[in-house]
Design a protein around this nucleic acid. Structure first.
Lengths: 332, 332
DNA sequence: CTGTTAGCGCGTTCAC
DNA sequence: GTGAACGCGCTAACAG
């Protein structure tokens, strides 16, 4: 039925060891016999069994990827970055959605380790202590992509969330705004709560503007909640919005314009993501570039170093961000 | 180092066969010994090695997924559908991007088969004869998701592309339009060329409207080309657009409105996809619902039947479509 | 209900 | 440069 290394060995009048050598590119094979073996492989349509190989060599050339939700464009972008680099290094990817559910995350980690992946790229807004504990004792390397582990025990790749948010709010302040709303994603996420929100507060404070809690609206990152957030802020009449992602920003745009105000003349908006949506909005969104693809790519690259037991120069990688100025803000 | 089934067998004073039985939920184990084994498993932190298991059982409980590009929201949606059902049936997914490159597709197929996946879900706009040949002789089941194989030799899940397109164009005609542009994706794609385009022509013909080739614009599915398409049609002044996907539709909206025309008063648009973008456009897009998630889910479900060697009632599944009426068309 | 014994397909010493 | 033999960790008969 299935043709094994044994079959080609017999057919080529060599031992399976020799076949194994040519398949694995070992140089210790006489060119003539190599050629002969290759020919038989071709004839028989022999295809090495990666599972058997994995058992014998203890390497599967596959890495696990655990992300919240592949149908969310942010994570899809991240996944693509991971996959491209994985392919470059000859790895395949086992992709799983966790929906940020901690039990699912734990269970997925377990499954991946059971499948003997050579490494894991993990993403989640918050990493519980139990998860962290499991990761620390993982026999295979793990790197966090766009995820915060403040204990810094696990390798990670991120941007300077705090600095980026601070700069955005500061820019809004610089444009003369004092009533700046912060439309945030879930505050259960460490990035939102401990970085963006704190940066928002600090930027306000540094400008001598009093923090008003009611200007902060916690949303689920969706378009509809972006719209709703503006509605809930109606009486406060914010003149500027700092929004956690592009999809919500579009909701904000629509709600603001529906109320008769103009962007950026009456209201300015700075988004956070800079996906292709930011160019598809009207006005086009000024947005902090959150380089998901790069974070994925760099995470995977870092993981390959761990898998090869290479020297790691920097365990906590911080990628640069930038503000992409478009038309939802008044630019000088 | 790593604890094996052997270790727990020794520690629990049973044979490895017994350990295997409890791990696999085999009922032929006395409750007392089951409990004892479970305890040792817990103590030793034993984790079954899926690779060894795969070698012995010839089942890996993982399926391969080959799609064009996970960072494209359409395919991401499809992938999520696949993954959800896969999870439901306890399969993991090896996800790879082909970028619609035939060589890459062939090579990925080869890789997946080498990794001994139990099944494969494949998506591509066009399936070359060589690819088809390889699929036919694949030892493991394959199902095509949202992909056409006219020879009908490989199982597949699709919608009635022709009927959907026909209905869209007919609706536009019914609203009084005669100059209807068709902004198509690549005509190298069978769906675009042999289904949507043909339906467009037939609907026109059935209404006694002459087909004008210059009203058909081939694009790469991007927002920018949607804009460009409208520009290239400026002199022809089409009063309606049938557009191949939501992203291009938004480009069309922006370009049309930039030219001073109003939607839907002056120009009507029907899109094809009905992603969440269709609600985020202004005006919101009337769109043919292309149920990517469902196609993925049903494909995976179908695949499980093949993997279980169940009876297949319908090898070529056609899912229903519908038109979601919103504000880019005048609705009665 | 439980243990023994073969493999599953391949990588890898270690001799020759 | 090449082959024989063992082992990777587990499932699957087959006995008992």
């Amino acid at each position: 039925m299935t043709v094994t290394i044994y079959d080609v060995a017999r057919e080529a009048n060599v031992s399976m060891a020799t076949v194994s050598r040519v398949v694995n590119g070992n140089q210790n094979v006489k060119p003539a016999t190599r050629k002969k073996v290759l020919k038989v492989i071709e004839e028989l349509g022999y295809r090495p069994n990666a599972v058997a190989r994995g058992l014998a060599s203890k390497k599967t050339t596959t890495v696990g990827v655990i992300i919240p939700d592949i149908s969310n464009s942010m994570y899809a972008e991240l996944a693509r970055g991971i996959e491209d680099i994985a392919t470059m290094y000859r790895y395949n990817i086992i992709l799983s959605n966790s929906d940020q559910n901690e039990n699912k995350e734990l269970q997925l980690l377990e499954t991946m380790l059971g499948k003997q992946v050579d490494g894991i790229v993990f993403m989640s807004d918050t990493i519980s202590t139990e998860l962290l504990y499991e990761m620390e004792r993982s026999p295979t390397p793990i790197v966090l992509a766009g995820s915060i582990d403040e204990s810094a025990t696990i390798a990670s790749v991120n941007i300077d969330y705090y600095g980026a948010a601070y700069e955005a709010v500061k820019k809004l302040i610089g444009n003369g705004h004092e009533k700046i709303a912060f439309i945030s994603g879930p505050l259960t996420s460490k990035v939102n709560k401990d970085y963006k929100l704190k940066a928002y507060r600090q930027a306000l404070q540094d400008a001598g503007i009093e923090f008003d809690e009611s200007l902060v609206v916690e949303c689920n990152n969706s378009y509809d909640e972006g719209i709703a957030a503006v509605g809930s802020l109606k009486e406060l009449k914010p003149t500027a919005y700092f929004v956690s992602n592009d999809e919500m920003s579009i909701g904000v745009i629509h709600a603001v314009e529906a109320s008769g105000l103009h962007i950026p003349e009456d209201v300015e908006i700075i988004s956070y993501e800079n996906s292709k949506l930011s160019r598809m909005a009207r006005p086009m969104l000024t947005s902090i570039a959150f380089p998901l693809y790069d974070i994925g790519a760099v995470s995977m690259r870092l993981l390959t170093k761990y898998m090869n037991k290479e020297e790691i120069e920097e365990k906590q990688v911080i990628l640069p961000y930038r503000i992409e100025e478009r038309n939802s803000t008044k630019n000088t």
